[in-house]
Computed example of a mutant assay.
Amino acid sequence: MANSGLQLIGFLLSLVGIATTIAATLMVEWKKQSQGKAHRIYEGLWMSCSGNERTTCEFHETVLKLPTEVQATRTVMMFSIFLSAVAVIVSTVGMKCTHFMDDNAKGKSTIAMIGGIMFMVSGLLTIIITSWYVKMIVQTFYQAHRLQTFEFGKAVFISWAGGLFTMAGGAFLSCRRCSRSEPSPSTRVNHLLPTTNPKSNYV
């Protein structure tokens, strides 16, 4: 069964990953565009901002008018956060440092492993959709005129970091210590006892 210290490290790493993923999802700098020396345009999954020293932001009015990469990234990121939230509940039940299911150690360990796998899937989804988003931005950058295209921003790197932290935490949670089961003392005593009664010689 997994070490409780290892589980705690994995759980904390997963929490850091969730917080980082949520921050990246809410950030506005998923892609950026420079017009001149001072004017900047930023676009995120939920809003866009533009301006010089003072920037003004507004939420996206309709989902249907958004680019495909924004719609897909927003959906997958929200699903990843939801899956991580469920994994937090499952892992809390299965961790050794909690008092849930203390009478069923094997089932408790299995639940912790399931929570870790859910964290790993969540982190993997975040990394995949972020990488695909970057790929779409790069393709558009080289196909169109450079003055009319966007570059990917800081939120991309934060999203990658969140996915890696979540995956690492899930790996720690789902890790099990492989060790051979030693026979119990009663079993060892039984092996030392003779199986048949020796015959007694009477004079």
Rank of each mutant, 00 (worst) to 15 (best):
T130P: 04
T130W: 00
K108N: 10
I127C: 14
T110D: 10
K108W: 10
V134S: 06
Q143N: 09
A105L: 11
G115S: 05
A105K: 10
K108A: 08
D102W: 03
Q139A: 11
M113Y: 04
I111E: 02
L124H: 00
K108G: 10
I137G: 00
M101K: 08
S131T: 13
F100K: 06
I127V: 15
G107Y: 00
T126L: 05
F100A: 12
L124Y: 06
I129N: 02
I127K: 06
F119E: 02
I127Y: 07
V121E: 08
K106S: 10
I127P: 06
I129C: 03
M120P: 00
I129W: 02
A105P: 11
M101V: 09
G115M: 05
M118N: 02
T126W: 00
A112K: 00
I114Y: 05
Y142R: 14
A105S: 13
D102V: 03
A105N: 07
I128T: 12
G116D: 07
T140F: 04
M101P: 02
Y133F: 14
I111F: 03
M120S: 11
G115Y: 01
H145C: 08
T98C: 12
M120C: 12
F119W: 07
D103V: 05
A112Q: 02
F100C: 11
I129Y: 01
T140A: 14
I128M: 09
L124A: 13
G107H: 01
Y142L: 09
T140G: 11
T98V: 10
L125Y: 07
T110N: 14
F100V: 09
M118Q: 05
K135S: 14
G115P: 01
D102I: 01
Y142N: 15
K108T: 07
I128L: 12
M113T: 12
Q139S: 13
H145I: 13
M118F: 08
Y133M: 04
K108P: 10
S109Q: 07
Q139E: 15
I127R: 06
G123A: 03
I137A: 08
T130F: 01
A144G: 06
G116T: 08
V134M: 09
Y142T: 15
F100S: 09
Y133I: 00
M120W: 00
M113R: 15
H99N: 12
F141A: 15
L124N: 01
S131K: 11
I117T: 07
Q143K: 10
A112T: 04
T98G: 05
I111Q: 04
Q143Y: 10
Q139F: 13
I114T: 08
F119A: 01
V121A: 13
